[in-house]
Every structure is written in structure tokens, then in C-alpha cells.
């Protein structure tokens, strides 16, 4: 692979059935490019968790993916309510998701812990009332 590849997705916030489309596309793309299965898996899970969070909590947003020869960087940006207590949100099992989200199979408080588990670097930049930007880095090879 030569040079960087950039991908951009707009995530609608009002359609839960479409959540995960972008992550699915990126996973396919990385497999086609011959990226290692471990790195593909890490990107797929961490990005999907972020995409789901975006739909559940922030009425959608944008995702930018940069693929280089050494790493994959995913930036998830939303204009949602922001995260009040990041340390608390990072604890496995803590969730502010409403019951209707739990009925859909999410909101178990594993989203951010999973993103941390499956990324090599996770940066959360959030401001109450303004939104959240999550940056995930997964190293290749």
C-alpha cells in the first residue's frame, strides 16, 4: 500500500437499523487491502461501538478513517450532549442508555471499555452541551 487512504461517513442519528453500516464497509475495505485479521477485528469492534454510541446518545455525527502503512485512525465526531464524567463512563457496566436502547441489545455499559480494549490508543475529547470527539488508533502489524 502506498500513501494514505481517507474515508468519510455521515452517520444518521434517527435510524438505528442503519447503525453499523460504516463499520461494516471499513471492515470489508481493510480485508480487501490485506490488513491483518487482528487489526481488522480491532477496528471493526471499536468503530462499531463508537458508531452505535453516536446513534444512541448523540443523534448521529461524522466518522473519518485514515489508513496508513503503520496504523488506522478513526475519528468519531458528534454534536451530542457530551459525556458528563468520562472516568465513570469508562467503567464496565456504567450506562446512561434508556431502556428502549437496552431492549435493542445495547446499553450494557460496555461501549467505551470495549473501545479501549480493542484500540491501541483512545482519546476522548468531550464538552458538555457541545459534543464529543473520540479518536481511536489501531496499529497495523
Amino acid at each position: 500500500m502506498t500513501g494514505k487512504i481517507h474515508l468519510n461517513y455521515v452517520i444518521p442519528g434517527d435510524d438505528f437499523t442503519r447503525a453499523g453500516e460504516a463499520s461494516g464497509e471499513v471492515k470489508k475495505k481493510l480485508k480487501q487491502m490485506g490488513v491483518s485479521p487482528e487489526a481488522v477485528r480491532k477496528v471493526a469492534i471499536s468503530m462499531y461501538e463508537g458508531e452505535i454510541n453516536m446513534v444512541i446518545h448523540a443523534n448521529g455525527g461524522t466518522i473519518d478513517v485514515d489508513i496508513s502503512t503503520t496504523d488506522i485512525t478513526i475519528v468519531l465526531k458528534d454534536n451530542g450532549p457530551g459525556i458528563k464524567d468520562v472516568a465513570l463512563a469508562m467503567q464496565a457496566g456504567y450506562s446512561t442508555a434508556p431502556d428502549k436502547v437496552r431492549a435493542l441489545g445495547f446499553g450494557a455499559g460496555m461501549g467505551l471499555p470495549n473501545m479501549k480494549k480493542y484500540s491501541d490508543n483512545l482519546i476522548i475529547d468531550t464538552k458538555l452541551g457541545y459534543g464529543t470527539t473520540v479518536t481511536i488508533v489501531v496499529k497495523i502489524g
Binding site: 437499523t17 441489545g105 445495547f106 460496555m110 461501549g111 470495549n114 480494549k117
Partner: peptide, 23 residues
Amino acid sequence: MMSDVLAFVKDQCVLLTGLCNTQ
């Protein structure tokens, strides 16, 4: 809970579920 599946499942796994949606 798909959150749990994402947290704990390993490769080449059969998923049994009573949840029925696209996610």
C-alpha cells in the same frame, strides 16, 4: 445483549440469541 457479545466473544463462534433485529 449485543454489548456483551462485542465484549466477550472469540472467533469462530456460534451466536445463540432471542434478540431479533439488524444489529
